[in-house]
């Protein structure tokens, strides 16, 4: 699908993903990467089939009286067979979801992001940087970030871990240049300043907020922990 992807989730992250051990936010971003990356999808399939073999190899439990499933079958088959959908209608097109940048007009969102994309509110943080928080879970902070051509964010480092998936376009920082499908990991050991020449849409999952390290934003650090980018925009 996209053989030029150079940056992938770490091996143990893929394994934790297959074992359903990651937070929802981290699971969502890995899943979105898999949809773009054959290599990692094959790797996860291997972990899944290992799990599957373990499942099949488990010894048969004795029939236990405590496990009284009586009546469960009858209850289930009395339910209608059509699925009652209660969640928001998934959105695979960000423009349809209210994001009016022509940059995203040909983008089709990975499946794992479509539920979250149905309820985005975009805000312009600073010149050329747009952000929309995706309400996915309480353990992480998930957001779409759009950097217009020529935009850059302030230099910052991280208290926790940040995963970024490039959905479309390209950005670079002190460590390299990243394009479609690339999956990046940054933590407190990295200080960086992402910038994009031709525009870039990415999805990011942070387990703690960012900490800016230079200039004015630094003064705001205590508040930044709550809403770093919102504060910056004012």
């Amino acid at each position: 699908m996209n053989e030029s992807i150079a940056h992938h989730p770490a091996e143990d992250m893929l394994e934790s993903f297959a074992r359903r051990e990651l937070s929802t936010g981290a699971s969502v971003i890995v899943s979105a990467h898999l949809e773009m990356c054959n290599r990692c999808r094959a790797r996860v399939a291997e972990f899944e089939s290992r799990e599957m073999r373990e499942w099949n190899a488990e010894p048969e439990p004795p029939p236990a009286e405590t496990r009284d499933f009586d009546g469960m079958i009858e209850r289930i088959v009395s339910l209608p067979r059509q699925d009652a959908e209660t969640v928001a209608t998934p959105v695979d097109d960000l423009q349809a979801a209210g994001f009016q940048e022509s940059f995203v007009k040909d983008l089709r969102l990975p499946r794992a992001l479509r539920q979250a994309a149905a309820r985005l509110r975009w805000t312009c943080l600073t010149e050329g940087i747009h952000q929309a928080i995706a309400p996915i879970d309480r353990e992480t902070r998930c957001e779409f970030i759009y950097m217009a051509a020529g935009a850059s964010t302030p230099v910052h480092t991280h208290y926790g871990r940040e995963y970024t998936l490039i959905l479309q376009g390209r950005f670079h920082d002190e460590l390299g240049s990243y394009g479609n499908g690339d999956f990046l990991f940054r933590d407190a050991s990295h200080e960086h300043q992402p910038a994009s020449e031709n525009g870039c849409l990415s999805f990011a999952v942070l387990d703690r907020p960012l900490r800016f390290t230079r200039g004015l934003p630094r003064l705001m650090n205590p508040i930044n922990r709550l809403r770093f980018r919102g504060v910056l925009a004012r």
Binding site: M1, V28, Q115, R119, E139
Partner: peptide, 26 residues
């Protein structure tokens, strides 16, 4: 997630598809 009172905005089936029509299945 429900037991931990986490919001469930994204179904697990969207994260780990059930082998339905996803593109490029190996």
């Amino acid at each position: 997630r429900k037991a931990k009172r986490q919001p469930i905005c994204v179904s697990a089936d969207d994260i780990w598809p059930l082998g339905e029509a996803t593109e490029g299945s190996p």
